[in-house]
Structure formats: structure tokens, C-alpha cells
Design a protein around this nucleic acid. Sequence first.
DNA 1: TCTTAAAAGGTGATTTATGCCAAATCTTGA
DNA 2: TCAAGATTTGGCATAAATCACCTTTTAAGA
Lengths: 156, 156
Amino acid sequence: MPNLDKFDIGILEALQEDARATNVEIAERVNLSPSPCLRRIRNLEKSGVIRGYRADIDRKEVGLGLTVFVEIKVGQHSRENSDAQQAALIAMPEVTGAFLISGTADFLAEVVVEDLSVYERFLTEKLLVLPGISDIRSNFAIRTIKTGSPLKLPQR
Amino acid sequence: MPNLDKFDIGILEALQEDARATNVEIAERVNLSPSPCLRRIRNLEKSGVIRGYRADIDRKEVGLGLTVFVEIKVGQHSRENSDAQQAALIAMPEVTGAFLISGTADFLAEVVVEDLSVYERFLTEKLLVLPGISDIRSNFAIRTIKTGSPLKLPQR
DNA sequence: TCTTAAAAGGTGATTTATGCCAAATCTTGA
DNA sequence: TCAAGATTTGGCATAAATCACCTTTTAAGA
């Protein structure tokens, strides 16, 4: 973990709020001149602290009306070599988040699709065909309260 | 839902991949000249399709080592007026995502914190004190496979 | 086909990004 | 404590991008 001082944290907070803010604006906010500020941003990008910049898109507005949290249970013997399943989840664009979870299920995947019919196709054609899956439980989001909000960064 | 043509979809895809790409680059990618491309981006922002631009930050790299999916059950009589609970979840910076869910639990919240001790404090001081909560179940992410990936946009 | 509205394309002034260099600050070891 | 070395900051100049304004092109309806 790289050493992040208060300038870096401030830059990250600014870029979480508005990733298209100009370097000049960010520099003013963190009380640096533009030159060192831009250098720090580039360093944060190169070191992997900043993985990229994403437009935050309203799912409903683009016709993605259904979010599903899928609990995926893996068969007993498939637990060690679940790398293939993880790679498969990563490769699926409908899956916007995926985690290995303690407790009842093994994987938890957040799936974003147009509607129930598209989800049904996704489930039967992409998820259920994965090898080593023993059980799948779908939890449908009735309402989306909050998504993709900025992280609360530890202060330095 | 506004009418989004192939240019808009292309712009949104470009901004999901790299929200700091220049307007000129995006224009080239979608085969528009810079002027109408920038106009479309501003329209997408004004109409709410684009909610903002966020730096995608590696949680581990900033010391946020623990992601928890919290199932929050609401008492029978508190179901109708759960607006206060929703507002509370929205206001908590540790909660990066929150949904009303069909099935066993009522809310599903994604919580991102430094470690278990911070999570315990969050749970006891912020979640358990909410009125109308009947049960809380914490599912800890053993491993983060994928977060905040671009949405798969319906094509036009 | 003609008219009109809407969207695309071009242009130029202003702002921003970014490499380079000097000044300032911080570190470290004697 | 002090000085040498290393790191970081700030200023400057140039190339690039943004964005408002205007003209041209495209599309639709009568």
C-alpha cells in the first residue's frame, strides 16, 4: 500500500466527486499549484490507486431497469479451483460486481439487465451453464436506493 | 426515458471506459465532429442520464480492506414508512450501495470500511440504532472479484 | 419539390495540460 | 546542529482542448 498523504486523499476525494474536474480546479481545492497536483494524479494512476474514471450512468434512464443480486453456490469439490468461475463472472458485462462471500452462498454477483426476460436468458444461458454450480438464488432489487457512491476514504 | 441513438450510446460507452477522455477523442470514436459530440455530452448530463463522473479507486490500495453485504430486516409495522431508513442509508458514506430487495431481507446494503473493528463500530453505532430494524445479517466479502464495472448498455 | 426545424460541422478566443527548470523543503548522517 | 543530497513544489512556455457562435447540411412534413 503506497503512502498517501493529505494531498493525495484530497485529490482522490475531488476525483470521486467529479472525475472531469480540471487539474486547475483540483489543485485549488487541495491547495497545491497545478504542476505538483497533476504529477500526483499521474502517480496515483500509475500505482494503481486510481483504476480509471467512469461516467456514473442512471440505470433506469438507459433502460436497465432490473438489478439482481445472485447468490451462487459452488459444489463441494469445485471450491478450490473456482478461478475459472471467477474469470467467467469477470468476463460477463451484465455482472457489475462480484464477491466471494462468507456464509451461506459462495459468490455474490450484482447483475444489471433490461428486464426479467433478459435476466431469465442470462440466468439459463450464461450462469447455469457454468461448471461446478450447485445452487443459485436470485434476489431482485425492488428499488435502487443508492449505487456507486464515493468511498469514504481514511484520512491521513 | 429520453431517446438515445447510437451516437449517445457510443458516447456513454466511451465515458464509462474513460471518463477523462477528451471530447475530441470521444468524437473520433463515435464518428462525430467535436462540436455536436460535446453538445450531446452536455445534454446527457442535463437530462440526468449521466449522473456524474467518478474516479474508480482500488479499495485495498486506500486501506479499505473490508466489504460487507448487510441484509437489514425491517419490523412489520415499519414497512410503509421506510423512507427515513432509506434516507439514513443514503447519508452514510460507508454505504456505497443500497437496495430494497425481494425475498428474505428488506434492505441490502454494501458497506465498505477499513477493517472488522471499524465495521463493528459502524454496525453498533450507526445501523443498529436505526428505528424499526428487526434483524441484521452481515455477509463478509472474502475476496473482491469485480466492482463498479461499466454497464452493458442496450444497443440502439 | 419546397419549407422549416433540427442536428452537424467549422472557427477562433480562452482555458487547460504538460514538460522543463529553478527554488524550496525535507531527510539523513556525521 | 549542520550540511549534502534527494525529493517536491512552483513558475513558465507551448501545444492541445474547450466552448460559444455561426454556417452548412440533413431530415421531415406539407
